[in-house]
Write a protein that binds this DNA or RNA. Structure first.
Lengths: 214, 214
DNA sequence: GGGCACTCTAAGCGCCCGCTCAGCTTCGGC
DNA sequence: GCCGAAGCTGAGCGGGCGCTTAGAGTGCCC
């Protein structure tokens, strides 16, 4: 039922799961518009226009404007969770896995900035049920990161005073990259990922400081 | 021309500089509405209603809805910059001043969460000129924090690989508190401030780890 | 106590929003 | 070559938006 590529954690072509083609074009147009102006300031006419279609065409593929945001948010959070899970279940020690999680998570927020912006900052525009579904995914993201840090504390490699608070801070730090990252700025997503991995290892008091950077 | 209390860095009663009373009530109502629903999703009727006035009353005190946001943003950024400046020009060493800056900055973002949310996340809703004015203030905030970290590097107390990147990350971490902080949650603003001061000292590789916490 | 500045309201203007619907085109099956 | 399904458009609906205007109420100066 699915091609092989979309089942693994690799960086698949984004939005390939959205079909038919017109629906995907509309969704991509919506991501760009939402990221530029915000959900509420974006009109359905703008979205349809960017996709090269009439305003009415949107409603053939999506019931409402909110359903568009919901689909975007769902797919984005699935991807984010997938990134964190892949890193958390990797082979190295806690420091290596945490550095991996942070650098790849940050790389996604910087490299796919428009998507990440919508996914992370437009949550409140969703209705209660859709929002609850997304919040559950966020909690799973939190649990993955907390798990890695817990492992590090257990082995004595990390030294943290407040596990939940530190986890929250680490995720918050990574997520906020989507707000300030500038594609035309001096840093590449890879560079920011490496910098942030180092900063986070310091935050958890990792014993071997400059070791893990892959 | 001004009472003494508003010239120093103390926690003055917020919005006391906005007069007359009706204008202040409207502005406070706008802060609450913008924080709850976002600038674009907030109607002028909603703002006026919260302030207990008719929709038209808003336009006696403010030319447009955007001017309201501009005033809020300006006052908020002035306050944020004041907080950072006060800490940066304090008496202690770099570690103490950095911890002071982070804890008080975070305390503001948590304790005045609604204001901070609007101030930090609705920047894009401003027009070009107003936006440019606010961006200049943000750069000054950045410079204050960067200055402290530079001092610490100069004295050998801090060890950072990327000064600009680390500064950006520290500010980003603090600002994002406004997004996730929950007034009804388990943490007080003071606790988050203390936690974050510790995390930031770790990020800059401060030598005396658990010393500064006032 | 008349005039005036200030504050606020009721009513509403013009516009654009999310969304709908009747009808046109295209295309595969037989 | 006809038919129905699917995809899409042009026109437009009901409604709420930001903002304006005419005028009423209030208090202060002289």
């Amino acid at each position: 039922m699915s091609t092989a590529e979309e089942t693994r954690g690799g960086d698949t072509e984004p939005w390939s799961e959205v079909t038919p083609d017109a629906a995907r074009r509309l969704l991509i147009a919506a991501v760009e518009a939402f990221a530029e102006r915000g959900y509420h300031a974006t009109t359905t006419r703008d979205i349809a226009g960017r996709a090269g279609m009439s305003p009415a065409a949107l409603y053939i593929h999506y019931k409402t404007k909110e359903e568009l945001l919901h689909r975007i948010s769902r797919i984005g959070h699935d991807r984010a969770l997938d990134i964190l899970r892949t890193a958390a279940r990797g082979e190295g020690g806690p420091a290596e896995r945490l550095a991996d999680a942070v650098s790849s998570f940050v790389r996604w927020h910087a490299g796919r900035r428009t998507t990440a912006l919508v996914v992370q900052y437009e949550l409140d525009a969703l209705g209660p049920e859709a929002r609850a579904e997304i919040v559950a995914l966020r909690r799973q993201c939190d649990a993955e990161v907390r798990g890695i840090i817990e492992d590090g504390v257990a082995t004595g490699e990390f030294e943290v005073l407040d596990l939940k608070g530190t986890t929250l801070a680490v995720l918050s730090l990574c997520i906020d990259v989507a707000r300030w990252f500038n594609v035309d700025g001096p840093r590449t997503p890879d560079e920011v990922g490496a910098l942030y991995a180092d900063l986070v290892l310091r935050m958890v008091g990792a014993k071997a400081p400059a070791a893990a950077q892959k």
